[in-house]
Amino acid sequence: MKPINTALCSFGMSGVVFHAPFIDVHPGFNLYGVWERTKNNAQAKYPNVKTFRRLEDMLADNNIELVVVNTPSVTHYDFTKQAINSGKNVIVEKPFTATVAQAEELIQLAKEKKVTLSVYHNRRYDSDFKTIKKVMDEGWLGNIVEAEIHYDRYDPVLSYKIHKETPTAAVGGLYDLGSHLIDQALVLFGMPNAIYADMDTFRPNSKVEDYFDVKLIYNTHRVTLKSSYYVREVLPGNILHGTKGSFIKSKADVQEAALQAGKIPGTQDWGAELDKEKGLLHTEKDGKIIREYVPTLNGDYMAYYEGIYQALRNNKSVPVSATDGMNVIKVIEAAIKSNKEKRVLEL
C-alpha cells in the first residue's frame, strides 16, 4: 500500500525528536517535506526530504497527504485551518488550540472538508501512564478515591524559546505541561463535574504562569494535577489511592531522552525503564495483603503513528480525536477562570 506522504510544519525540537524519527521508521509513512524558512536541517538529516520556504507552497503540493502542525501553540489554530482548507489530513501538537471556540471551528471544518484531524497527545504512550492504566483496569485499586499526577522539574531559568515565555494565547504552564496531565486524567477518569485551580508565577522575571495546582472534582473521587519549576527533589509523579489499595509510580519514561540521544524508535528494549523505577502496589487479593513492585510496561510513541496509519488506510478511529483535544482546552479554560475568580467552577 502506498506510504502516507507526510510534511512537518517545523524542524525544531518537536520535529526532530517527536515526529520525524517515527515517520521515517514506520513503513506506512514517507517523510516527504518540511517547512524551514531559511535552514536546511531536515534535508541534512533526511536527504530525500523536500524543503519548503513558505507554508503556502507546502500546502499547495498535491503529493502531501498528511501535515503535522508542530509549530508554537499560538499558531496551531491558524496553521491547522489553512492545512484543512488545503484538503490535508492534520496532526496538530498539543495544546490543540487556545480556546474551545477555535477547536469547535476546526472540528466542524474537518468534517466539511472530509479530512482526518487528530491531536498529538503522546504522553498517553508513556511507560508510567500505560502501567497505571493497566493496574486500574485490572481492578487492583478498587474504586479510586484520590489521585495525583505531577509534572515537576527544577528549572528556574526562563526558556530560550521566546514563544514559551511570551504571554500570548495558549502559552503558560497549564497549556504546556498541563495539557499532558489533563489528557491523562481525562483518559483515566473522564470529564470532571467541577474544577478548582490555583496558578502563579514564581520564576524571576517570568511573565507566564509556571506553577499550577488543579483539582478535578468528581462525584466519587478527586484528582490533583500539579506542576512546578522549583522541585529539586523528585517526588513520585503518580499517586493513586483506591478502596482496595494504592499505587505509587515515578515519571520515568525514557523515550524523550532516547530520541534526543539519536536512538532509533523500535530498536531492542525501546521504551524500557530502569528496573528501579517499578511502581509500588499495596493492595489485597483474596483476603491477603500484597505489597510488591509492579513491572513497568514499555513506552511506545510509535503506537500513536500506527494509529494514524490505521485511520488513514483502514478507516479506523484516530488514536487521539480532535474532540479529546478540545476537552483538554475546556478544562484549561475552566481552570483559568477558576483561578481568576478564586472559586470552584462547575462544568
Rank of each mutant, 00 (worst) to 15 (best):
214 V>R: 01
214 V>Y: 02
214 V>E: 01
214 V>T: 09
214 V>K: 05
214 V>A: 00
214 V>Q: 00
215 K>I: 12
215 K>V: 08
215 K>A: 11
215 K>E: 11
215 K>H: 14
215 K>G: 06
216 L>Y: 02
216 L>A: 05
216 L>T: 05
217 I>W: 13
217 I>C: 09
217 I>F: 12
217 I>T: 10
217 I>A: 11
218 Y>H: 07
218 Y>N: 01
218 Y>L: 03
218 Y>Q: 06
219 N>D: 15
219 N>C: 06
220 T>Y: 13
220 T>W: 14
220 T>H: 15
221 H>W: 12
221 H>D: 03
221 H>P: 10
221 H>R: 15
222 R>Y: 14
222 R>A: 12
223 V>Y: 09
223 V>I: 14
223 V>G: 06
223 V>S: 10
223 V>C: 13
224 T>V: 15
224 T>M: 15
224 T>G: 12
224 T>F: 15
225 L>F: 09
225 L>M: 08
226 K>T: 14
226 K>V: 12
226 K>C: 08
226 K>D: 09
227 S>N: 02
227 S>K: 06
227 S>H: 09
227 S>R: 08
227 S>C: 05
228 S>Y: 03
228 S>E: 00
228 S>K: 08
228 S>H: 07
228 S>T: 13
228 S>P: 04
228 S>V: 07
229 Y>N: 08
229 Y>S: 08
229 Y>K: 08
229 Y>A: 02
229 Y>C: 03
230 Y>R: 09
230 Y>M: 09
230 Y>D: 09
230 Y>V: 04
231 V>F: 01
231 V>M: 09
231 V>D: 02
231 V>G: 00
231 V>A: 04
232 R>Y: 07
232 R>K: 12
232 R>G: 11
232 R>C: 01
232 R>M: 10
233 E>S: 05
233 E>N: 08
233 E>A: 04
233 E>P: 00
233 E>L: 06
234 V>Q: 13
234 V>I: 13
234 V>K: 09
234 V>A: 15
234 V>D: 11
234 V>P: 00
234 V>S: 11
235 L>H: 10
235 L>Y: 07
236 P>N: 04
236 P>M: 03
236 P>R: 01
237 G>M: 07
237 G>T: 09
237 G>C: 06
237 G>W: 04
237 G>A: 11
237 G>Y: 05
238 N>C: 13
238 N>P: 08
238 N>V: 13
238 N>Y: 15
238 N>Q: 13
239 I>C: 00
239 I>K: 00
239 I>R: 01
240 L>F: 15
240 L>E: 02
240 L>D: 04
240 L>G: 07
241 H>K: 14
242 G>W: 08
242 G>E: 12
242 G>S: 03
242 G>F: 11
242 G>Q: 10
243 T>P: 09
243 T>Y: 01
243 T>D: 05
243 T>F: 01
243 T>H: 02
243 T>G: 00
244 K>G: 00
244 K>Q: 10
244 K>I: 05
244 K>L: 14
244 K>W: 08
244 K>A: 08
245 G>F: 02
245 G>I: 05
245 G>R: 04
246 S>V: 04
246 S>E: 10
246 S>F: 03
247 F>C: 02
247 F>N: 01
247 F>M: 01
247 F>P: 05
247 F>G: 00
247 F>K: 01
